[in-house]
Amino acid sequence: MTEMMATRDAYGQALVELGRQMDKIVVLDADLSKSTKTALFAEKFPLRFFNIGISEADMMGTAAGLAASGYIPFTSTFGVFATGRVYDQIRNTIAYTKLNVKIVASHTGITVGEDGASHQALEDIALMRVLPNMMVVVPADGRQTYQAVKAVARYEGPIYLRLGRPKVPQVIPAGLFFELGKAQLLKEGKDLAYLAAGITVKPSLEAARILESQGIDAAVVNVHTIKPLDEELLLQVAKKTGALVTVEEHSVIGGLGGAVTELISEHHPVPIIRIGINDTFGESGTPEALLKKYGLTSENLVNAGQAVVQKKRQLSC
């Protein structure tokens, strides 16, 4: 049986452990600490926790001031409020200054669910990715989040860490360790490759298994660091398979699909199909219903896999 865990829960637990190990870690929240799970840290380390209230812009600036004085601030709120809402603050006071601020968004993507479009960040990766100095990380499951938070704390510089609300199964093997900037080849394959991030890694693995029974050999890569991209591994996979499907719980514009197409079209053009949210806002519903409606299912990925292989064949004749 696979253990279920929300990535935000793993974040809360990792922060507590880090709080014990690193006395320079401080945590800021904007009235969502119970949801973002920073409340766990607040309970253990009240003097190093600052609830800034519903003032996200101020929270980012305050974090910058703490970082400029040698602290390692983690700021948390929902994805929409952690990025677009405070874009200029992040741009000018955190990214331009290259300050050691960690922006950790707990609720991102379509699986925010019932709260609907106002709360579903589907463009946050794009917004953060275009900022110089900003690293963008999207862990695939709870265990990987735990490892990622620790790596993020030890890295010096601004990072956007994208987490999610629902409980998700473990998909990354226990022995496979997280390293910032190093994508993980989860399954070898020669006919196509799924390049996935976050909760879409699991349906990608499932799709690869289904294709196998049809005689199609698909690779699966967990691209947990979207910036900087692991160009070496991705180009290697593109050369080997000649057909790619990018999969993300984010707009097909500007996120993982955008980053991969930029890289591949410049260095080794091969057919690509981008699976994600097709330039539209989200809506209310259960995470499962939304994933189905917006095509983030293994069935849809199987179709995309078949289609991209066909494209490749057409091009080669």
């Binding site: 401080v26 003097l47 190093r48 600052f50 812009a57 101020d58 929270m59 980012m60 600036g61 305050t62 974090a63 910058a64 001031g65 703490l66 970082a67 400029a68 004085s69 040698g70 602290y71 601030p73 603050q89 000018n92 006071t93």
Partner: peptide, 16 residues
């Protein structure tokens, strides 16, 4: 944006 950053510096001084 400067007052927010100054607040962060003042909090840091207090923590120190």
């Amino acid at each position: 944006q400067g007052l927010s950053a100054a607040n962060g510096m003042a909090l840091a001084a207090r923590l120190d």
